[in-house]
Simulated scan of single mutants.
Amino acid sequence: MFLEFINLLTQFDSGFGVLNYLTLRAVLAMLSSLLVSLALGHYFINKLHQYQIGQVVRTDGPQSHLVKSGTPTMGGLMILFTFIISSLIWADWSSIYLWMVLATAVIFGAIGFIDDSLKIKHKSSDGLSSRKKMLSQSLGAIIIGLWIILSIDNPLQTQLLIPFFKDIALPLGIFGFLILTYFVIVGASNAVNLTDGLDGLAIMPVILISSALALFAYISGNYNFSNYLNMPFMPGTGELFVICAALVGSGLGFLWFNTYPAEVFMGDVGSLALGAILAVIAILLRQEILLFIMGGVFVVETLSVIIQVAYYKRTKKRFFLMAPIHHHFEKKGISEPKISVRFWMVTLILVLISLASIKIR
Protein backbone atom coordinates (compact mmCIF):
# COMPACT_ATOMS: atom_id res chain seq x y z
CA MET A 1 0.00 0.00 0.00
CA PHE A 2 2.71 2.47 1.03
CA LEU A 3 4.73 1.68 -2.11
CA GLU A 4 1.99 3.17 -4.29
CA PHE A 5 2.14 6.37 -2.27
CA ILE A 6 5.95 6.42 -2.51
CA ASN A 7 5.81 6.03 -6.29
CA LEU A 8 3.45 8.99 -6.42
CA LEU A 9 5.78 11.12 -4.30
CA THR A 10 8.84 10.23 -6.42
CA GLN A 11 7.16 11.93 -9.34
CA PHE A 12 7.62 15.20 -7.48
CA ASP A 13 10.95 14.49 -5.78
CA SER A 14 13.22 11.54 -6.59
CA GLY A 15 14.56 11.63 -3.01
CA PHE A 16 11.46 9.79 -1.84
CA GLY A 17 12.71 6.78 -3.79
CA VAL A 18 14.87 5.84 -0.81
CA LEU A 19 11.70 4.57 0.86
CA ASN A 20 11.52 1.86 -1.79
CA TYR A 21 14.63 0.18 -0.42
CA LEU A 22 13.97 -3.26 1.01
CA THR A 23 16.15 -2.75 4.07
CA LEU A 24 14.52 0.54 5.01
CA ARG A 25 11.03 -0.89 4.57
CA ALA A 26 11.99 -3.84 6.77
CA VAL A 27 13.24 -1.56 9.53
CA LEU A 28 10.11 0.58 9.31
CA ALA A 29 7.90 -2.54 9.32
CA MET A 30 9.55 -3.81 12.50
CA LEU A 31 9.36 -0.43 14.23
CA SER A 32 5.74 0.06 13.19
CA SER A 33 4.54 -3.28 14.55
CA LEU A 34 6.60 -2.83 17.71
CA LEU A 35 5.42 0.70 18.48
CA VAL A 36 1.77 -0.07 17.70
CA SER A 37 1.96 -3.10 20.01
CA LEU A 38 3.41 -1.00 22.82
CA ALA A 39 0.86 1.75 22.26
CA LEU A 40 -2.18 -0.54 22.17
CA GLY A 41 -1.00 -3.17 24.65
CA HIS A 42 -2.55 -1.87 27.86
CA TYR A 43 -5.77 -0.86 26.09
CA PHE A 44 -6.05 -4.33 24.57
CA ILE A 45 -5.35 -6.06 27.89
CA ASN A 46 -7.94 -3.89 29.65
CA LYS A 47 -10.50 -4.88 27.04
CA LEU A 48 -9.76 -8.54 27.63
CA HIS A 49 -10.28 -7.94 31.34
CA GLN A 50 -13.52 -6.12 30.62
CA TYR A 51 -14.92 -9.00 28.57
CA GLN A 52 -13.58 -11.56 31.07
CA ILE A 53 -11.43 -13.31 28.49
CA GLY A 54 -9.19 -15.05 31.00
CA GLN A 55 -6.95 -18.10 30.97
CA VAL A 56 -8.33 -21.38 32.31
CA VAL A 57 -5.47 -23.18 34.09
CA ARG A 58 -5.17 -26.96 34.29
CA THR A 59 -5.64 -28.17 37.85
CA ASP A 60 -3.33 -31.14 37.28
CA GLY A 61 -0.40 -28.92 36.31
CA PRO A 62 2.20 -27.18 38.47
CA GLN A 63 0.42 -25.60 41.43
CA SER A 64 2.34 -22.36 40.92
CA HIS A 65 0.28 -21.83 37.76
CA LEU A 66 -3.03 -21.62 39.64
CA VAL A 67 -2.38 -17.96 40.41
CA LYS A 68 -2.41 -17.32 36.65
CA SER A 69 -6.06 -18.32 36.38
CA GLY A 70 -8.01 -15.42 34.92
CA THR A 71 -4.99 -13.75 33.32
CA PRO A 72 -6.15 -12.28 29.99
CA THR A 73 -5.58 -14.62 27.07
CA MET A 74 -5.99 -14.43 23.27
CA GLY A 75 -3.18 -11.88 23.19
CA GLY A 76 -2.27 -13.48 19.88
CA LEU A 77 -4.95 -11.23 18.36
CA MET A 78 -2.69 -8.27 19.14
CA ILE A 79 0.30 -10.02 17.56
CA LEU A 80 -1.63 -10.85 14.39
CA PHE A 81 -3.23 -7.40 14.18
CA THR A 82 0.04 -5.48 14.36
CA PHE A 83 1.80 -8.00 12.11
CA ILE A 84 -0.86 -7.88 9.39
CA ILE A 85 -1.25 -4.09 9.49
CA SER A 86 2.51 -3.48 9.38
CA SER A 87 2.95 -5.99 6.54
CA LEU A 88 0.16 -4.40 4.52
CA ILE A 89 1.66 -0.94 4.97
CA TRP A 90 5.29 -1.69 4.15
CA ALA A 91 5.26 -4.81 1.93
CA ASP A 92 4.64 -4.91 -1.81
CA TRP A 93 1.01 -5.80 -2.53
CA SER A 94 2.00 -7.31 -5.88
CA SER A 95 4.01 -10.01 -4.08
CA ILE A 96 2.27 -13.37 -3.92
CA TYR A 97 4.43 -14.21 -0.91
CA LEU A 98 2.74 -11.47 1.11
CA TRP A 99 -0.75 -12.85 0.54
CA MET A 100 0.30 -16.44 1.21
CA VAL A 101 1.75 -15.55 4.59
CA LEU A 102 -1.19 -13.33 5.55
CA ALA A 103 -3.68 -16.01 4.47
CA THR A 104 -1.83 -18.48 6.67
CA ALA A 105 -2.04 -16.05 9.60
CA VAL A 106 -5.79 -15.62 9.11
CA ILE A 107 -6.60 -19.34 8.60
CA PHE A 108 -4.63 -20.66 11.56
CA GLY A 109 -5.48 -17.63 13.69
CA ALA A 110 -9.17 -18.41 13.09
CA ILE A 111 -8.67 -22.03 14.19
CA GLY A 112 -6.96 -20.84 17.36
CA PHE A 113 -9.64 -18.22 17.96
CA ILE A 114 -12.39 -20.84 17.86
CA ASP A 115 -10.36 -23.09 20.17
CA ASP A 116 -9.79 -20.27 22.68
CA SER A 117 -13.42 -19.17 22.51
CA LEU A 118 -14.65 -22.65 23.40
CA LYS A 119 -12.26 -22.84 26.35
CA ILE A 120 -13.49 -19.51 27.68
CA LYS A 121 -17.15 -20.33 27.03
CA HIS A 122 -16.98 -23.67 28.84
CA LYS A 123 -14.42 -22.45 31.41
CA SER A 124 -12.29 -25.48 30.63
CA SER A 125 -8.80 -26.10 29.32
CA ASP A 126 -10.37 -28.23 26.58
CA GLY A 127 -11.37 -26.37 23.43
CA LEU A 128 -11.73 -27.90 19.99
CA SER A 129 -11.50 -31.68 20.00
CA SER A 130 -8.17 -33.03 18.77
CA ARG A 131 -9.89 -34.48 15.73
CA LYS A 132 -11.54 -31.21 14.70
CA LYS A 133 -8.39 -29.19 15.33
CA MET A 134 -6.25 -31.58 13.28
CA LEU A 135 -8.81 -31.65 10.47
CA SER A 136 -8.90 -27.85 10.34
CA GLN A 137 -5.13 -27.55 10.37
CA SER A 138 -4.79 -30.23 7.71
CA LEU A 139 -7.25 -28.46 5.43
CA GLY A 140 -5.41 -25.17 5.90
CA ALA A 141 -2.02 -26.75 5.19
CA ILE A 142 -3.30 -28.44 2.01
CA ILE A 143 -4.84 -25.20 0.74
CA ILE A 144 -1.58 -23.30 1.27
CA GLY A 145 0.47 -26.12 -0.30
CA LEU A 146 -1.70 -26.22 -3.42
CA TRP A 147 -1.60 -22.44 -3.66
CA ILE A 148 2.22 -22.48 -3.59
CA ILE A 149 2.41 -25.16 -6.31
CA LEU A 150 -0.11 -23.43 -8.59
CA SER A 151 1.23 -19.89 -8.14
CA ILE A 152 5.02 -20.09 -7.91
CA ASP A 153 6.99 -21.11 -10.97
CA ASN A 154 10.31 -22.02 -9.40
CA PRO A 155 12.30 -25.16 -10.33
CA LEU A 156 13.43 -25.41 -6.70
CA GLN A 157 9.88 -25.36 -5.37
CA THR A 158 9.53 -29.13 -5.35
CA GLN A 159 13.05 -29.83 -4.13
CA LEU A 160 14.29 -30.23 -0.57
CA LEU A 161 17.49 -28.23 -0.09
CA ILE A 162 20.11 -29.78 2.16
CA PRO A 163 21.84 -27.13 4.31
CA PHE A 164 25.63 -26.97 4.72
CA PHE A 165 26.04 -28.40 1.17
CA LYS A 166 26.32 -26.36 -2.01
CA ASP A 167 24.42 -28.25 -4.68
CA ILE A 168 22.59 -31.06 -2.93
CA ALA A 169 18.81 -31.09 -3.24
CA LEU A 170 16.34 -33.95 -3.10
CA PRO A 171 13.64 -33.96 -5.80
CA LEU A 172 10.24 -34.41 -4.17
CA GLY A 173 7.79 -34.01 -7.01
CA ILE A 174 4.44 -32.31 -6.54
CA PHE A 175 2.97 -35.04 -4.34
CA GLY A 176 6.08 -35.21 -2.18
CA PHE A 177 6.10 -31.44 -1.83
CA LEU A 178 2.49 -31.47 -0.66
CA ILE A 179 3.26 -34.10 1.95
CA LEU A 180 6.27 -32.12 3.17
CA THR A 181 4.22 -28.92 3.29
CA TYR A 182 1.51 -30.65 5.27
CA PHE A 183 3.84 -31.99 7.93
CA VAL A 184 5.90 -28.81 8.22
CA ILE A 185 2.89 -26.50 8.62
CA VAL A 186 0.79 -28.73 10.89
CA GLY A 187 3.85 -29.82 12.86
CA ALA A 188 5.17 -26.31 13.42
CA SER A 189 1.73 -24.98 14.34
CA ASN A 190 1.19 -27.63 17.00
CA ALA A 191 4.79 -27.45 18.22
CA VAL A 192 4.58 -23.74 19.03
CA ASN A 193 1.19 -24.37 20.63
CA LEU A 194 2.65 -27.03 22.94
CA THR A 195 5.61 -24.81 23.84
CA ASP A 196 3.41 -21.90 24.86
CA GLY A 197 3.10 -22.92 28.50
CA LEU A 198 5.37 -20.49 30.38
CA ASP A 199 5.65 -16.72 30.36
CA GLY A 200 7.61 -15.64 27.30
CA LEU A 201 8.70 -19.19 26.51
CA ALA A 202 7.27 -19.45 22.98
CA ILE A 203 7.45 -15.89 21.70
CA MET A 204 11.22 -15.36 22.00
CA PRO A 205 12.11 -18.42 19.88
CA VAL A 206 9.57 -17.17 17.33
CA ILE A 207 11.38 -13.80 17.29
CA LEU A 208 14.82 -15.38 16.93
CA ILE A 209 13.74 -17.76 14.16
CA SER A 210 11.91 -14.96 12.34
CA SER A 211 15.09 -12.88 12.44
CA ALA A 212 17.11 -15.72 10.91
CA LEU A 213 14.50 -16.35 8.21
CA ALA A 214 14.58 -12.63 7.42
CA LEU A 215 18.29 -12.91 6.66
CA PHE A 216 17.76 -15.98 4.46
CA ALA A 217 14.98 -14.14 2.63
CA TYR A 218 17.18 -11.11 1.98
CA ILE A 219 20.03 -13.24 0.61
CA SER A 220 17.80 -15.52 -1.50
CA GLY A 221 16.05 -12.56 -3.07
CA ASN A 222 19.29 -10.77 -4.01
CA TYR A 223 21.13 -12.22 -7.02
CA ASN A 224 24.56 -10.85 -6.05
CA PHE A 225 24.44 -12.03 -2.42
CA SER A 226 22.94 -15.43 -3.24
CA ASN A 227 25.54 -16.01 -5.97
CA TYR A 228 28.42 -14.99 -3.71
CA LEU A 229 27.20 -17.19 -0.83
CA ASN A 230 26.32 -20.16 -3.07
CA MET A 231 22.65 -20.00 -2.13
CA PRO A 232 19.81 -20.51 -4.63
CA PHE A 233 18.52 -17.27 -6.09
CA MET A 234 14.73 -17.05 -5.74
CA PRO A 235 13.34 -13.85 -7.25
CA GLY A 236 10.74 -12.09 -5.14
CA THR A 237 11.55 -13.78 -1.84
CA GLY A 238 13.25 -10.58 -0.69
CA GLU A 239 9.77 -9.32 0.17
CA LEU A 240 9.68 -11.96 2.92
CA PHE A 241 12.46 -9.92 4.55
CA VAL A 242 9.93 -7.15 5.21
CA ILE A 243 7.29 -9.62 6.40
CA CYS A 244 9.70 -11.33 8.82
CA ALA A 245 10.74 -7.93 10.17
CA ALA A 246 7.09 -7.07 10.85
CA LEU A 247 6.73 -10.38 12.70
CA VAL A 248 9.82 -9.65 14.81
CA GLY A 249 8.42 -6.27 15.81
CA SER A 250 5.03 -7.73 16.72
CA GLY A 251 6.72 -10.44 18.76
CA LEU A 252 8.88 -7.97 20.67
CA GLY A 253 5.85 -5.80 21.38
CA PHE A 254 3.96 -8.79 22.75
CA LEU A 255 6.95 -9.94 24.80
CA TRP A 256 6.87 -6.58 26.60
CA PHE A 257 3.59 -7.68 28.20
CA ASN A 258 4.17 -11.45 28.16
CA THR A 259 7.48 -11.55 30.00
CA TYR A 260 7.38 -12.93 33.57
CA PRO A 261 5.03 -12.29 35.28
CA ALA A 262 2.84 -12.19 32.19
CA GLU A 263 0.08 -9.60 31.88
CA VAL A 264 -1.41 -11.47 28.92
CA PHE A 265 -1.09 -14.86 27.22
CA MET A 266 -1.10 -15.35 23.45
CA GLY A 267 -3.56 -18.26 23.52
CA ASP A 268 -4.05 -20.70 20.66
CA VAL A 269 -5.02 -17.85 18.35
CA GLY A 270 -1.41 -16.73 18.58
CA SER A 271 0.54 -19.96 18.94
CA LEU A 272 -1.19 -21.91 16.15
CA ALA A 273 -0.86 -18.96 13.76
CA LEU A 274 2.77 -18.15 14.60
CA GLY A 275 3.91 -21.73 14.09
CA ALA A 276 2.16 -21.91 10.72
CA ILE A 277 3.58 -18.54 9.63
CA LEU A 278 7.14 -19.64 10.38
CA ALA A 279 6.50 -22.89 8.52
CA VAL A 280 5.15 -21.22 5.38
CA ILE A 281 8.01 -18.70 5.27
CA ALA A 282 10.52 -21.55 5.61
CA ILE A 283 8.76 -23.50 2.85
CA LEU A 284 8.78 -20.52 0.50
CA LEU A 285 12.50 -20.10 1.17
CA ARG A 286 13.10 -23.87 0.83
CA GLN A 287 14.63 -23.95 4.32
CA GLU A 288 12.46 -26.58 5.98
CA ILE A 289 15.41 -28.48 7.41
CA LEU A 290 16.89 -25.33 8.93
CA LEU A 291 13.50 -24.53 10.47
CA PHE A 292 13.65 -27.97 12.11
CA ILE A 293 17.12 -27.15 13.48
CA MET A 294 16.32 -23.60 14.62
CA GLY A 295 13.07 -24.76 16.18
CA GLY A 296 14.81 -27.46 18.19
CA VAL A 297 13.06 -26.31 21.35
CA PHE A 298 9.68 -26.72 19.64
CA VAL A 299 10.73 -30.14 18.37
CA VAL A 300 11.82 -31.35 21.83
CA GLU A 301 8.60 -30.06 23.41
CA THR A 302 6.56 -32.01 20.86
CA LEU A 303 8.64 -35.17 21.23
CA SER A 304 8.27 -35.03 25.01
CA VAL A 305 4.48 -35.20 24.64
CA ILE A 306 4.69 -38.05 22.12
CA ILE A 307 7.08 -40.00 24.36
CA GLN A 308 4.96 -39.37 27.45
CA VAL A 309 1.76 -40.60 25.80
CA ALA A 310 3.38 -43.65 24.17
CA TYR A 311 5.24 -44.64 27.33
CA TYR A 312 2.14 -44.28 29.51
CA LYS A 313 0.02 -46.39 27.16
CA ARG A 314 2.64 -49.11 27.25
CA THR A 315 3.63 -49.11 30.94
CA LYS A 316 0.93 -47.07 32.72
CA LYS A 317 3.81 -44.98 34.09
CA ARG A 318 5.06 -41.50 33.23
CA PHE A 319 8.39 -41.06 31.46
CA PHE A 320 8.53 -37.36 32.46
CA LEU A 321 7.14 -35.87 35.64
CA MET A 322 4.86 -33.92 33.33
CA ALA A 323 4.71 -33.11 29.64
CA PRO A 324 5.45 -30.92 27.72
CA ILE A 325 9.00 -30.99 29.01
CA HIS A 326 9.04 -27.44 30.39
CA HIS A 327 6.56 -28.62 33.02
CA HIS A 328 8.92 -31.52 33.83
CA PHE A 329 11.61 -29.00 34.74
CA GLU A 330 9.10 -27.02 36.79
CA LYS A 331 8.23 -30.16 38.73
CA LYS A 332 11.93 -30.60 39.45
CA GLY A 333 11.94 -27.21 41.16
CA ILE A 334 13.47 -24.98 38.49
CA SER A 335 11.87 -21.54 38.43
CA GLU A 336 9.73 -20.51 35.49
CA PRO A 337 11.88 -17.52 34.39
CA LYS A 338 15.04 -19.66 34.48
CA ILE A 339 13.44 -22.32 32.27
CA SER A 340 12.26 -19.74 29.75
CA VAL A 341 15.62 -17.96 29.52
CA ARG A 342 17.52 -21.23 29.16
CA PHE A 343 15.19 -22.32 26.35
CA TRP A 344 15.80 -18.93 24.70
CA MET A 345 19.55 -19.50 24.94
CA VAL A 346 19.25 -22.95 23.36
CA THR A 347 17.22 -21.44 20.50
CA LEU A 348 19.82 -18.71 19.99
CA ILE A 349 22.57 -21.33 19.72
CA LEU A 350 20.54 -23.36 17.21
CA VAL A 351 19.80 -20.23 15.18
CA LEU A 352 23.51 -19.35 15.07
CA ILE A 353 24.34 -22.89 13.92
CA SER A 354 21.75 -22.53 11.16
CA LEU A 355 23.14 -19.16 10.11
CA ALA A 356 26.56 -20.77 9.83
CA SER A 357 25.15 -22.81 6.95
CA ILE A 358 25.23 -19.63 4.87
CA LYS A 359 29.03 -19.83 4.63
CA ILE A 360 29.61 -23.53 5.27
CA ARG A 361 28.70 -24.96 1.87
Rank of each mutant, 00 (worst) to 15 (best):
L3I: 09
E336C: 07
L274C: 03
A202V: 03
L355D: 03
F343G: 06
K47R: 13
L38A: 05
D153K: 01
V305I: 05
M322T: 15
L22F: 14
A273N: 03
V300E: 12
A169D: 13
I349M: 07
L198T: 07
N224T: 11
Y43T: 13
I325Q: 12
G15C: 02
L170P: 13
H328N: 14
R25G: 03
T181I: 10
K68F: 04
M294Y: 04
S340H: 02
M266A: 08
M234L: 12
N222E: 02
M345K: 12
I84K: 13
G295S: 09
L252T: 06
G221S: 01
F183N: 06
G253I: 15
M234H: 07
F343L: 07
V305S: 11
P62Q: 05
L88F: 15
Q287L: 06
L194C: 07
L178S: 05
L272P: 00
P163A: 02
L128F: 00
Y218S: 04
F83N: 14
L34I: 11
Q52W: 15
D167P: 12
L40S: 06
L139P: 04
K133S: 14
I45H: 07
S129W: 08
L139G: 01
L161M: 05
F165Q: 03
N224Q: 12
Q63D: 14
Q52Y: 15
L48M: 10
F292H: 08
E330Y: 06
E263D: 14
G112P: 04
F175R: 13
F2Q: 00
I207G: 14
F329I: 13
I293K: 09
F225D: 04
S69R: 09
L321E: 10
A282H: 10
I277K: 05
Q308V: 05
F319M: 11
A245T: 11
F12W: 09
L178Y: 02
L40N: 06
A276V: 02
R131D: 13
I96M: 14
I283D: 01
D199H: 01
K47S: 10
A356L: 10
S250H: 08
L272I: 00
S151L: 03
L213A: 00
S14A: 09
G127N: 00
V186K: 04
Q55E: 11
R286W: 09
L80Q: 03
L290H: 08
M322N: 15
H49I: 14
L303M: 14
F292S: 15
K313P: 15
V346A: 10
F2H: 07
V57Q: 10
L198A: 05
K68P: 01
S117R: 02
L146K: 02
N154T: 07
R314M: 12
F241S: 14
D126L: 12
V300D: 09
A279Q: 03
L213M: 04
P235H: 12
F5E: 11
